[in-house]
């Protein structure tokens, strides 16, 4: 893992059928999603988003993640080189498991959101024993 060179990837602009009501660019953050028996964890790269800028909405199994960014740089700056654009982040997922909404935790560190969605009791796997008849 340590020898791997990071490749530059263009930020993906959000493709959505509906138009945005607010001007500005919207990007889809890169995510890792993994689950253990108890929780589903979502990690999302949202550089420039502070912990106040994140909003998470879970309704009817649909999880929406939005991150608002502050402008990078002051007003008096002139661009000399521009290889990336900035804009807010948005992505949504359908969650198939039942989530215990009261225990969701979200933390933001170095521009990475860690969202922990604990599964509700019903969704936890139950071991079914096969009895010899």
């Amino acid at each position: 893992m340590a020898d791997k060179e990071l490749q530059v990837r263009e930020k993906q602009e959000l493709q959505s059928e509906a138009e945005h009501t607010r001007p500005g660019l919207v990007f889809t953050p890169m995510v890792d999603i993994f689950e253990s028996e108890q929780v589903i964890t979502v990690l999302a790269d949202m550089p420039g988003v502070s912990s106040d800028g994140v909003s998470i909405d879970l309704q009817n199994n649909e999880l929406k993640i939005t991150g608002e960014v502050e402008d990078q740089g002051g007003e008096k700056e002139r661009f000399l080189l521009r290889e990336y654009n900035t804009g807010r982040f948005h992505r949504h997922f359908t969650i198939s498991d039942r989530i215990d909404q009261s225990k969701i935790t979200a933390t933001m560190k170095d521009g990475v959101l860690r969202l922990v969605l604990p599964k509700a009791e019903k969704a936890k796997p139950k071991k079914i024993e096969v009895k010899a008849g």
Binding site: V8, G48, D110, G111, V112
Partner: peptide
């Protein structure tokens, strides 16, 4: 990303400084 090298950079200037920015989440 013109250079094709990570990280993508933005560079800007005002009268006193040059600013180089990169998005390095995590």
């Amino acid at each position: 990303p013109a250079a094709g090298v990570f990280p993508a950079l933005n560079m800007s200037e005002d009268d006193h400084n040059l600013y180089v920015r990169a998005e390095l989440p995590g």
